[in-house]
Amino acid sequence: MIVSGLLLVVQAGAGHAAAASDDLRAIVQAFYALHVLGAAAWIGGLWPLLNVKVKKADVAGGTLTISHGAISKIHMPAMTMTFPVTDPTHLQMLHKGDPVQIEVANQDGTVRVIDFKMQH
């Protein structure tokens, strides 16, 4: 369990947390580390991390259309969905069929893609 927690915390060194300005980076990374540990402590808390296929990346509209297979842990069938993206800056690098891992969050009643990572 300790190793799992350390592996989660290490993720704070990548992605949006690591891209923060120099004077805020340590604070943002610390909060991200606490966030992932808190989510992992809640049973099922990390289900918003999904491996999906890109159907369409709409940079101008700030949305990402994805498809995924069935997620048996939460009894969700396979489907295609479109989500608004918190920061659409990097959507231009995505193409139809690309495998990505997305992180979604409910922000003020709207489920949004808050981060994504290319899968190789």
Results as ranks from 00 to 15, higher is better:
F116A: 00
I66C: 13
A57V: 04
I114M: 02
L49Q: 15
V54S: 07
V52C: 08
I2P: 00
N51Q: 09
G44M: 08
D58A: 10
H120N: 13
H68Q: 08
M81K: 06
K96G: 05
A105P: 00
G15S: 10
S67Y: 11
P88Q: 12
V36C: 07
I74M: 01
K53E: 07
V85Q: 11
D115W: 12
H90S: 11
H75A: 02
A57C: 11
M81A: 09
V28T: 13
L6P: 02
I66P: 09
T65Y: 14
G61R: 04
T63R: 10
H16T: 14
W47H: 15
V100H: 00
L50G: 05
G69V: 11
V3A: 06
Q107I: 04
F83P: 04
D98F: 15
P99E: 15
I2E: 10
M81T: 03
V36S: 02
V100I: 11
P77W: 01
T110R: 10
L50A: 05
A41V: 06
H68T: 05
Q119H: 08
M79E: 14
A18W: 13
N106M: 06
M93N: 09
A26Y: 06
A17M: 13
L94F: 10
Y32E: 01
P48F: 06
L49R: 15
L37Q: 05
G62A: 04
I66T: 15
P88L: 13
H120G: 15
H35V: 00
V9G: 11
T110L: 04
Q92L: 14
I2M: 01
S21L: 13
G97T: 03
V85Y: 11
M76P: 01
V113T: 01
